[in-house]
Nucleic acid binder design. Structure first.
Lengths: 211, 211
DNA sequence: ACATAATTAAAACGCGCGTTTGAAATGAGT
DNA sequence: ACTCATTTCAAACGCGCGTTTTAATTATGT
């Protein structure tokens, strides 16, 4: 069963599911072990304790997400500004709505945001800052010189917010529109919308400040 | 101590703080009781069990937020479209960054989003739907006829996302810019930015679909 | 084949949790 | 002042958790 995976690998897979669904504290070693078809003591034998297992899951989640959906993954040859924003939004949305293990990162991040563990600092620096810098450059290009740093931050937040909110509104989507998934087409359409909407926003900000 | 509040009232206040910080499951009756300067058995005597206390806290949080910061609370006499969006954003941001008990609602909502309890359905219907309908009307006015329902939903999501993301990115704000608070001025500036940015986005969508 | 290491397994430990209990203290009505 | 309901209190209960322990089983190297 579970192919030819080792117990250690099965534990990481199972732990990923449970940590993503319940968060670090609410996840129990008993449930993880059962789902991995391993003994209750297997976690402590292979990882030392629950926290080290959590670290291993995070490490795997980060690798999967960043290689499966890089932030500049769908840029055309000579990209215009909107292409950058589309690529950013498209990658983030894919990470959020992926139903494979690539979606693990977003779900773990959601849990960390409401109940942070020590892992968050490391993740923020390692995984989140690079894509924030990517977006920072884009917004900087979009706006003319001598626009305040604060305004740039706000515009970045507007774009990030549009994307990331999908990661946090999942339970509401289930309640309002009945499903929490998105097809490939829906994802691309949504990313396109965010790119268009944001380009309009950026133009408007520039127009207001430099009429 | 604690003025002339009854034990029951002190418990609700203390429980609000603890539930907001830790979520339902991670919050312990021991900590709540201690903070309320009440006996460990007081919760069960006054509320029956932990869940009923949680309901009482939610009820109070909802009342406080919606009366302190109504969604149409700062509309001028003859509002233009941007005024509506500003009023919406301003109210949401105030709820999020309030350092009084009015901020309780947003914090509890954050916890519910990552680890939903039975309370969420009720809250979504009672508290979230009205303000979503408010925004729906605004976006509907902003866009011309025969624009798809889906596009309206996307635009609403763009605006909501910009506001609500502040409620979920708190731990990152602490990590990146060192603080998680906002002054009254910062809140208003941010709400103004969201209104401007969103007006630009809406105009762009309309321009693209009806050139 | 055998000795040794690596892994799995079942049971138990210690602890913190929500809850219950039964008695003590307090308050209100007459 | 006395009664009786209400509230507070300390202690204990039952349970589930992460972890440890000890033994059994399997794999590995020579």
């Amino acid at each position: 069963m579970s192919g030819k995976l080792t117990t250690k690998e099965r534990l990481i897979h199972a732990a990923g599911e449970v940590f993503a669904e319940k968060g670090f504290r609410d996840a129990t070693i008993a449930e993880i072990s059962e789902k991995a078809e391993a003994n209750i003591a297997a976690v402590n034998y292979h990882f030392g304790d629950k926290e080290k297992l959590y670290d291993a899951v995070w490490h795997r989640a980060f690798d999967l997400a960043s290689t499966a959906y890089p932030i500049d993954g769908c840029l055309p040859e000579n990209p215009i500004l909107e292409d950058y924003i589309f690529s950013y939004a498209n990658a983030i949305l894919h990470r959020i709505f992926s139903e494979t293990e690539s979606g693990l990162f977003a779900k773990l991040l959601h849990q960390e945001m409401s109940n942070p563990t020590l892992a968050l600092d490391h993740i923020a620096e390692e995984a989140l800052m690079p894509q924030t810098r990517f977006l920072g450059k884009v917004v900087h290009l979009a706006l003319e010189q001598h626009i305040s740093e604060e305004r740039i931050r706000l515009c970045m937040h507007s774009i990030i917010g549009q994307c990331a909110f999908f990661n946090f509104s999942r339970p509401l989507r289930k309640h309002v529109i009945g499903k929490t998934t998105m097809t490939e087409n829906e994802i691309e359409q949504t990313a396109r919308h965010i790119a268009e909407f944001s380009m309009g926003g950026l133009k408007e900000i520039q127009r207001i400040k430099h009429p």
